[in-house]
């Protein structure tokens, strides 16, 4: 046992034998318990500024927004009870219990938007996982230009979604769009196509654009997972005569299960929360045909200044995301963990 600094207590982990069970570990203080306690306080003091910042910029707004979802927020009358933090006055408004939630849940527009959101998320998650995995499998193989391909893969993902929206809006435009121009010059169409004329088509266009933007991230995660699979397994399978599909089914997919869980959770949450592309490309139209729950919540809160119902709408999404994460965990990881 060597100590790194003769003047400091020894904090290395020491195994502790137990007569009744497996070997356990505990913090071993080389000098005395008081010194360890003092170090603990010191560590707490060091992290406290960061914790304070997190409290201020994450926890407090979160709690406040939850409160708003249970309150009657009227920005035109911000008087009444308020809390003041660093000179900023946060009105508390009148508590109305579940009134905002009940109003939101009784609005047919909400349920239509939810149905649309579920369709959007389902298709997006499936496409992102399938395309992401396919690209990862390709990029995991050895071929010339693989590094360049991997680097290029990051381009769509690294772009701001507002930029992605504007880019695709330009490409799909019925008057100026490059896609129409190319198809027309190739003689494949005799008049320019309108990609946003029909609501269902517009919704699917949004999904495609979002997959284009997000699938590379799934690819990167899957690629990391693929590289951690021991090659011995594949060699052994080859010896046993397994082909590509068998290896995929019996080795690759089971080994990727933790990564699959991560991709599913991230894609689902990202899908539910997607707002930027709708904002830039369709504004929820034509009619309400591309209005998802996020867009509805955003519009209610920030266009109509109805922060109570707006936050209530958005917190229903939070609940859905949490529920889906639990379901994914049970479906994808439970077996893995028991193994």
């Amino acid at each position: 046992m060597t100590t790194l600094d003769p003047g400091r207590p020894d904090l290395t982990l020491q195994p502790e034998a137990s007569a009744s069970g497996p070997v356990r570990t505990r913090w071993f203080a080389g000098k005395n318990r008081q010194a360890v306690q003092s170090e603990g306080w010191f560590a707490a003091a060091l992290v406290s500024p960061a914790l304070l910042v997190i409290l201020l910029i994450v926890f407090l707004p979160l709690v406040y927004s939850i409160w708003l979802s249970f309150a009657e927020v009227d920005l035109l009358r911000p008087g009444g009870t308020a809390i003041t933090i660093f000179g900023m006055r946060l009105p508390l408004y009148r508590f109305t219990g579940l009134a905002n939630y009940s109003k939101v849940l009784s609005d047919p527009l909400y349920w239509q938007a939810l149905l649309r959101t579920v369709y959007f998320v389902a298709l997006f998650v499936i496409e992102a996982v399938v395309i992401g995995l396919a690209m990862a499998l390709v990029l995991n193989a050895h071929f010339a230009g693989r590094r360049l391909m991997r680097a290029m893969l990051l381009v769509p993902w690294s772009m701001s979604r507002i930029a992605v929206g504007i880019l695709w809006l330009g490409m799909l435009d019925a008057d100026f769009g490059a896609i129409n121009g190319i198809l027309y010059r190739l003689g494949l169409i005799d008049h320019y196509l309108s990609f946003f004329s029909d609501g269902f088509t517009a919704l699917n266009v949004l999904i495609v654009v979002y997959v284009w933007n997000q699938a590379p991230f799934a690819t990167i995660l899957f690629l990391a997972g693929l590289q951690s699979i021991p090659q011995d397994l594949y060699h052994a399978a080859s010896v046993d005569g397994a082909g590509f599909w068998r290896k995929l089914w019996h080795i690759t997919l089971p080994s990727l299960r933790p990564m699959m869980f991560l991709v599913l959770v991230l894609a689902t949450v990202n899908g539910f929360l997607m707002l930027d592309l709708i904002y830039v490309m369709t504004s929820g139209g034509p009619g309400n045909d591309t209005t998802t729950v996020t867009w509805l919540g955003y519009r209610t809160a920030f266009s109509f200044f109805k922060f109570g119902p707006g936050t209530a709408i958005l917190f229903t999404l939070t609940l859905i995301c949490v529920a889906l994460t639990v379901i994914y965990h049970r479906l994808v990881l439970s077996k893995f963990q028991s193994e």
Partner: peptide, 9 residues
Amino acid sequence: VTPEIFTKP
């Protein structure tokens, strides 16, 4: 009228 008009930003 072009159907594109309904989603012009």
